[in-house]
Design a protein around this nucleic acid. Structure first.
Lengths: 239, 239
DNA sequence: TTAAAAATATGACATTTGTCATATAAATGG
DNA sequence: CCATTTATATGACAAATGTCATATTTTTAA
């Protein structure tokens, strides 16, 4: 029996990419068995605690991160000193692709919203895939194109919708994307401050509108927990 | 002599890609002589008058446009019925790449702000380049990554800056990107309405702020023409 | 456990921005 | 050229949002 333990244990520690289910959700799904074996040797695994920074705006990140578990926020500091949350990124997605391709420092900071498991893949490795695996390149391109479309949509919302509409929309987005707990509250937990910096408003305005929504019976607030009570009305509000 | 005319004239009409200087400014610069010759046969040339639509949000555009001359706006309709100008695109740039790669309808409309010359390259042709010319793929990827970064920046501006700051910033952007006429006025001519829909505000607010800027001696207004009088003060205003 | 710090909540008020009305100027088409 | 439409401009006011003060609750760390 002892020899089995010796065999199985390292597999666990090194978390081989071939056996990692999460890769199926990202561009990495295009990699061949051989490429995955090679990847396992190059990558490094990291545990990130809630609140910790993965990388910071302006840094040179020489590779990409694959998120095995957890969620992080991508933020950008505006000239007035406030952070804006540009995007939330979760399990199965890759981080740092844009910066790597552009050969520039990252333009956003990544901060864990929960405890996370991530793997770092060095640039040299990824560039090799680009050269030899057309499907992988295409997947990355499609992902970035999807991000660009999302960004366009987001931009128009910020430019044309009211704060109230954006709050309703964001609550629905959080619900659709990250789901709910057994008690039906939003699974992802954001502070009022973070929620405000997602919708682009002052923290107080965000809190005030949440209170309004509560009074209107659209949501329920219990501490940090938010429960969406009337989704169809929220949808109407979000236009 | 007559035979020379017969030889030269068609060259002009067909505007061979090998001789088109504009391609040096886009991803197409990676194409080989052979690829360019082939491209010349596939592409179609079009003249677009000011105000005309190149494509509309939701359409299937089966290829990309290469802008040989002129400027157009990329707009997106928001739920409230107003258009938002997401981006201006000018001579040397390509249109429709994102949609082609994502294999989706275009998410933005393209409308000429001036008379334009564009060439349409069918999707099949571009996909061939993707397969066979790695440098071309890389160029396209870098362009889209640049667009994504720009979009992020734009988003944060919309979320965090005041209308006044955004107006100042936009005037400077127009100056830097499109230059000035001999009389020092902005070369690109936008209506107040278009300017407003770039900065994400009501037309009246935009007009009012322009008047304020004029009173403060920052700009001069002569009909549609805008002259930037005090660039450093505008920069301070834009933060 | 408890004191201190941080987050949430709310009121009061100022400021920004949007909307509607209307005037004036410019562009357009016969 | 003139009449009509469209764009620009401005006032008056309403609505949305931000800021500051302060209270209350929750979290954190000693």
């Amino acid at each position: 029996m002892v020899k089995f333990v010796g065999l199985i244990y390292p597999l666990f520690i090194m978390s081989k990419c071939e056996q990692c289910i999460v890769r199926e959700f990202s561009s990495l799904k295009a990699l061949s068995k051989n490429e995955l074996v090679h990847l396992s040797d190059c990558k490094t695994s990291h545990t990130i605690k809630k609140g910790e920074v993965i990388f910071e705006e302006g840094e040179n990140v020489n590779g990409i991160y694959c998120i095995k578990d957890g969620v992080c926020k991508l933020t950008k500091l505006s000239p007035n000193g406030k952070d804006h949350i540009v995007k939330l990124v979760t399990k199965g997605e890759l981080l740092g692709q844009r910066s790597m391709i552009s050969e520039e420092p990252v333009n956003l900071s990544a901060v864990a919203l929960e405890d996370m498991e991530v793997c770092f893949i060095p640039k040299s490795e990824v560039m090799g895939f680009f050269d030899k695996n057309n499907q992988f390149s295409m997947n990355v391109m499609k992902t970035i194109c999807g991000d660009l479309k999302e960004a366009d949509d987001h931009m128009v919302n910020l430019a044309q919708k009211t704060v109230k509409e954006r709050l309703a929309e964001t609550l629905l987005y959080l619900y659709d994307t990250f789901g709910k707990n057994e008690d039906n509250t939003l699974k992802i937990q954001l502070s009022r401050d973070e929620l405000a910096s997602m919708i682009g408003t002052a923290t107080e305005s965000c809190i005030r509108l949440l209170s309004d929504f509560k009074k209107l019976g659209l949501i329920e607030l219990t501490g940090k927990k938010i429960l969406l009570k009337d989704i169809s009305k929220l949808k109407k509000l979000a236009e």
